[in-house]
Computed example of a mutant assay.
Amino acid sequence: MRPPRTSAARLLGAFEPGSPEWEEARSGAMVTATDVAAIVGLSPWMSPFSLWHHKVGTVRADSAPNAAMSWGSRLEPVIADAFAEAHPDLVVHATGTWENGARPWQRATPDRILAPEAGGLPSVLEIKTSRYGEGFGEPGTGAVPVYYRCQVLWQLDTLGLETAHVAVLIAGQDYREYVVRYDEDEAAFLREQAVAFLAGVASGTPPPLDGHAATYRTAQRLPGGVEEVVADISPAIAEAYRAALLDHRRAEEAKRAASAAVLAAMGPAKKYQAGGLLVATRTVREDGTTRSLIPHPSYVKAAAA
Score class of each variant (00 low, 15 high):
L161Q: 01
P223G: 01
R176S: 01
T58D: 09
W52I: 02
A280Y: 04
A219G: 14
Q173A: 14
S70F: 08
D185L: 00
A9P: 03
G72P: 03
D232W: 10
A258K: 11
A164M: 02
I233K: 13
E227R: 13
R291F: 04
A254I: 00
G160H: 04
I237S: 15
H248T: 09
E76S: 13
P110H: 00
P122M: 08
S47G: 01
E16W: 06
W52C: 13
R10P: 08
T141C: 13
L277G: 03
R131Y: 15
A67L: 02
F83M: 09
R26G: 04
V284G: 07
V229C: 07
G211D: 12
S234R: 08
A25N: 08
Q193E: 09
A115G: 07
G96W: 09
Q151K: 12
P223A: 06
D247V: 14
P295K: 07
Q106K: 11
A8T: 05
A261S: 14
A67P: 01
G172W: 02
R250E: 15
G57H: 07
F136Y: 11
M46I: 05
A68L: 08
P223N: 07
I237D: 02
H248W: 06
D232Q: 11
I294M: 12
A29M: 12
A260T: 10
A199L: 10
L190W: 00
P110K: 02
R107T: 10
A187G: 02
A187E: 13
A304I: 02
W45L: 11
G142V: 08
P122F: 00
P48F: 07
A8Y: 00
T158H: 01
P223F: 15
G137C: 14
K55D: 06
R217M: 13
T158Y: 08
R249V: 13
E23Y: 15
P17Y: 03
A269W: 04
L11E: 07
G140D: 04
T129Y: 06
S203W: 08
P223S: 10
A280D: 00
V36D: 00
E253Q: 15
L153T: 01
M30L: 11
T289R: 15
A82M: 12
T290W: 01
A8S: 13
Y182Q: 02
P235A: 12
V146W: 11
A8N: 01
K270T: 12
A196P: 07
I127A: 03
N100G: 03
W52M: 03
